[in-house]
Design a protein around this nucleic acid. Structure first.
Length: 194
DNA sequence: GAGTAGATCGGCT
DNA sequence: GCCGATCTACTCG
């Protein structure tokens, strides 16, 4: 069963980032089904978070989708070649999002290998946000899609014990000053889902 | 195995 | 005109 859009409209983005661990994400693009369990996330807390694109209420063509009610995709191009998959959260006009940094592939692995131009599965297939989006076949053209659609959706996963979760600072946001130190990164210890 | 450079483009100053 | 919520290949040791 798909997670409803209301799930993403929860008002605490860090709590949601933690809760997303272990949930299953699926995409069906060009009739090819791929998916896996989410193993790493980062929360971006909106107007007060210097690391977030929407910091200070910045509203541009790119960030516009973050101001939507929670439950849509936010996918953008980074460093000119990598796509980043985010889930928009919270209510309308509270521009928060969660970056999906890693998944554990469960279905469509052959398709992911082709998309990632790999011969054999290894640890790097879906580790890192750029790799996740590429393996799932997502690009910036899949921006602003509802997260309960036929192209991309979430399903419930196993319960995760608090002790299987590692919390730490976010990656690659040194420019955010003090906010770079916030404990907004969540990941599952290896083996916590199977 | 660790460190570094190159790729490559859209959004913002 | 600069630099980013990155990844990979290649170097050197």
């Amino acid at each position: 069963m798909k997670l409803p859009l209301e799930y993403f409209q929860h008002n605490d983005v860090t709590e949601l980032a933690r809760d997303l661990l272990g949930k299953k994400i699926f995409t069906r693009l060009d009739d090819q089904l791929t998916g896996g369990a989410i193993t790493e996330t980062e929360a971006y807390a909106g107007v007060d978070d210097r690391a977030a694109h929407s910091y200070g209420g910045r509203r541009t063509q790119r960030t516009e989708v973050m101001f939507q009610p929670g439950g849509v995709s936010y996918i953008y191009l980074c460093y000119g070649l990598h796509h980043m998959l985010n889930f928009v959260t919270n209510k309308a006009n509270i521009p928060q999002a969660i970056l999906i940094r890693a998944i554990q592939p469960t279905i469509g692995i052959d398709v992911m290998l082709v998309r990632r131009k790999k011969q054999h599965i290894d640890k790097t297939l879906t580790a890192g946000p750029g790799s996740v989006a590429q393996a799932l076949g997502l690009t910036r053209f899949h921006n602003n899609l509802p997260l309960n659609s036929g192209q991309i959706w979430l399903e419930n996963g196993p319960n995760i014990k608090p002790e299987s979760i590692i919390v730490g600072p976010r990656v690659g946001v040194a420019y955010a000053g003090k906010d770079a130190l916030l404990p907004y990164r969540f990941r599952l210890k290896s083996g916590a889902v199977s």
